[in-house]
Simulated assay, not measured.
Amino acid sequence: MSGRIPSPFYIQNSGDNTLVGDILFPFAYDELLCRKVGEGAVPFVHIWRHEKAIVLGLRDRRLPHADRAIEWLKMQGYQVGVRNSGGAAVSLDPGIVNISIVMPNPDGRLEFKEDFELMYALIRESLDKLGMEAFKGEVAGSYCPGEYDVSVNGRKLCGISQRRQTKAFIVNAFVAAEGHAFRRGELIRSFYEVATGGDPELDAPRVDPATMTTLNEAGGRGATVRTFMRALAVTLSEWGGTIGRHPDKPSMAELEQMTAALRNRYDNASPAES
C-alpha cells in the first residue's frame, strides 16, 4: 500500500446532515458495499455523522454489567450498538465526523497496519490543509485507545478500527471536530464504571477525559466539522476520488436485513449479567 486508495473510487459525503435512528444502519451500509467491493465493485469512502449514539466494541459488550450500562445510556436518549470492527466504546454526536474506507483485498492479505496507515495518511493530509499537525500513537487515558490514535498537541481526537471480509476490508475512523471532548470522555468513563461494576481488575479502558480534544479546541475557530469535511473531500479528490453516491448502493430491504443481522450477531455477544 502506497498510502493511496486505488482509483477510481467514490467519495460519498453524507455528513451534511446528521443521521438519526439505528446507529448500526451506516455500519450495515458499509458492510454490504464491502461485499460488493470484494466482488469487483469500485472502492469508496463514506463520510457520515450521527445525532446521538454510543458505539461499543465487542469486548465492551462482554463486560459483566454491560446490559445495565446499555440501558443507562438508552435512558439518556442514546442509540447504542456494537460495531463489527475492533476497538472500544466511542461517543458520536454532530461534532464527530466518521470516515469509512472500503477497499478490495483480493489476496486475503493480513497486513492490517498498512490499512491503518492509509487512514492515518488521509487524516494527516486533511489536517495539514487546516494548518494542523497530526501525530499517531496511543494516548494513555483516552477512550478507544490504540496504536493508531491520532492526536494534536498531545491529546487524542481520532481513533481507527478495522473490519475485514474475505475479499475486502473497511477501515473506520471517528474524528472529533467540534463539541465537548471532556463531556464525551466523562460519558464513556461512566459507562465503564457501570459496565464493570467498579471492578478495576476487569479489562476495560481507564478513561481520563482530559486526554481528549477536538479540532476546534486544538486549532481554533477555523477548524470545524464543515472545514474538516471540505479538507477531506479535497484530499480524496487529489487521490483520484469522484464525489457521488456509489452506483452499487444497497437497497433499503438489504440495509434493514443487514442491520438486523448485525444487531443480532453482535449485540447478543455478552455473557449473562451477574
Rank of each mutant, 00 (worst) to 15 (best):
M1D: 15
S2D: 15
G3S: 09
R4E: 12
I5K: 09
I5D: 09
Q12D: 14
S14F: 13
G15C: 09
G15H: 05
G15W: 13
L19A: 12
G21E: 03
I23H: 02
I23Y: 05
L24S: 04
L24D: 02
F25S: 06
A28C: 00
A28L: 00
D30W: 04
L33G: 06
V37S: 09
V37R: 08
G38N: 02
A41H: 06
A41D: 09
P43E: 11
F44Y: 15
I47Y: 01
A53R: 06
I54K: 10
I54P: 02
V55K: 01
V55S: 08
L56G: 09
R59P: 00
R62A: 11
H65Y: 15
A66I: 08
A66N: 09
D67A: 13
R68C: 04
W72H: 08
L73W: 12
K74A: 01
K74P: 00
M75R: 13
Q76F: 07
Q76I: 01
Q76D: 11
Q79M: 14
V80A: 03
V80C: 08
R83K: 07
R83Q: 02
N84C: 12
D93I: 11
I96L: 05
I96H: 01
M103A: 10
N105P: 04
D107H: 10
E111Q: 11
E111M: 08
K113Y: 05
E114S: 05
D115F: 07
F116M: 08
E117M: 12
M119D: 10
Y120S: 12
I123C: 12
R124F: 07
S126E: 09
K129E: 13
K129D: 12
K129P: 01
L130G: 06
M132W: 07
E133Q: 14
F135Y: 13
G137P: 05
V139T: 07
C144H: 04
P145W: 03
P145Y: 02
G146Q: 10
Y148N: 01
Y148G: 00
V150N: 05
V150E: 02
S151F: 06
N153P: 04
R155G: 03
L157C: 10
L157W: 14
G159T: 05
R164F: 06
E178M: 07
H180N: 08
H180T: 00
F182W: 04
R184W: 04
R184T: 00
E186G: 03
I188R: 00
F191I: 03
E193V: 00
V194Q: 05
G197I: 03
G198R: 11
D199N: 13
D199P: 02
D199K: 05
P200A: 06
L202M: 07
D203F: 12
P205G: 08
R206M: 09
D208N: 12
A210T: 14
T211G: 11
T211E: 10
M212F: 02
T213L: 08
T213E: 08
L215H: 10
N216K: 06
N216I: 00
G222C: 02
V225N: 06
V225Q: 08
R226N: 03
R226S: 14
M229H: 01
R230P: 01
R230G: 10
A231T: 02
A233Y: 12
V234N: 08
S237N: 06
E238S: 05
P247G: 00
D248M: 14
K249S: 15
M252R: 14
M252N: 10
L255V: 14
Q257I: 02
A261Y: 13
L262K: 03
N264Y: 08
Y266T: 06
D267H: 15
N268W: 09
A269S: 15
A269K: 13
A272D: 12
